[in-house]
Design a protein around this nucleic acid. Structure first.
Lengths: 223, 223
DNA sequence: TGGTTTTGTGACAAAACTGTCACAAGTTCG
DNA sequence: CGAACTTGTGACAGTTTTGTCACAAAACCA
């Protein structure tokens, strides 16, 4: 049972789609205020957004941009202007799919299902991050390299993960601190240093030497 | 740098697409044996599959089905038969998207990018499993309920996760055992019982009573 | 019902994890 | 260079986690 937010100003079409999707077993919320959809978005906290492009006040691209500032919720665009340029634009703004109007009910259902499945039901495919020939398993927090496999502790895992998610960029010690101990408890500055050292040792034991580089007065980086 | 497997028998089109995608910074492998693509699939271990529907020997649907038996890799179908029925069919077979032929290079790139992003770069959206008004955060292994939030240990997390991923189904003690200690070390049968008990206690402290039910001689279940 | 098997519980010790300290090493910049 | 600051290291103790044991409770089955 997923929550689907439908941003469509054509009331007839919207309620027809709502019925259609609900019949198939989900909850749908229709936007009522197109001047600012964000309060309803935040309140409803949807699993998926169906976003028309032509809307009063602001267009779909605007809302996609706004949503993406604070959320990675899947977004499917709807539009009768379904030329290639619009499709490319929609994808590049962070959209996940594009359904041309008039919307075929079967296609709508199938595409919604595909995206929900990909995002909320499938874990295997995005379960690891590869780096330097090694891979970090996000499910069980293990690192595999050269046939060997080791377990990381919670802290080591978080540090490595943050660094890998920002590969090529310097991650400040401060942001690592908040990633590990988000404000709720005070820990010494040095505690981070020690934890990085422990992670480094494990990586080196595995054969990954000089994986994490120190940028003095800036932070750490994996490049 | 992602590995993309292109299953397309039109050699000219295939190599044009290969060049196109490689220029944009990825690796592409072209299938050479359409009688059985699986050896090449397994060898190449792609991050994404571009799958034509009309192929010699077997069609794209057949290969989609075969791939899905052992992998959740994202699959984008390509076809000139782009009627709604084909789209629905493609999605329902476990496909992630459908690009009509002739393929527009920009659309191809944008859609590939969107799906890779969704699968390999975004973590936030699929970071929790909701149940009974509570939610299990898959990133940090915490359970939130009724305003409270507690941390689970590695074992507790794995048990809860497996049970939630199979909600409504009975999970045998054996499969839990292998999920926690995959054969590499022997542990007592009873150790699992104890770990389940510890998880139950934490859940009950949180207010979630009778979450995990015992099915004697069968296993555990969350319904 | 009563014996057998399966599952649950409290306690305990070994092991792992974590934060801190004192001090060492490295970097920056006048 | 040398003082000031930043980062790294080994050791230590407190806490948490973990597997096991002995025994209790529950479920199954004849």
């Amino acid at each position: 049972m997923y929550r689907i937010l439908l941003v469509e100003d054509d009331k007839n079409l919207a309620s027809a789609m709502k019925t259609q999707i609900e019949n198939w077993g989900n909850d749908v919320h229709l936007i009522s205020d197109f001047k600012d959809i964000m309060p309803e978005f935040n309140e409803y906290d949807p699993h998926l957004v169906l976003l028309d492009i032509m809307l009063p006040f602001f267009n779909g691209y605007h809302w996609c941009e706004t949503i993406r500032k604070g959320s990675n919720v899947p977004i499917i665009f709807l539009s009768s202007a379904s030329d290639n340029m619009n499709i490319v634009m929609a994808m590049n703004m962070g959209g996940d799919d594009f359904i041309p109007k008039p919307v075929d009910p079967m296609v709508l259902t199938a595409k919604i299902q595909a995206i929900l499945r990909r995002n909320y039901e499938i874990k295997a495919s995005m379960s690891e991050i590869e780096f330097e020939g090694a891979s970090l398993n996000l499910n069980d927090g293990t690192v595999s390299f050269d046939g060997q496999k080791i377990e990381l502790t919670k802290n080591e895992f978080r540090i490595l993960r943050v660094l890998l998610e920002n590969r090529g960029k310097i991650v400040s010690r401060d942001s690592l601190m908040t990633a590990l101990w988000q404000d709720d408890c005070y820990v010494e500055e040095n505690t981070l240093t020690v934890n990085v050292a422990r992670l480094r040792k494990k990586m080196e034991d595995l054969g990954l030497k000089d994986l994490i580089a120190t940028k003095p007065r800036a932070g750490y980086i994996i490049s």
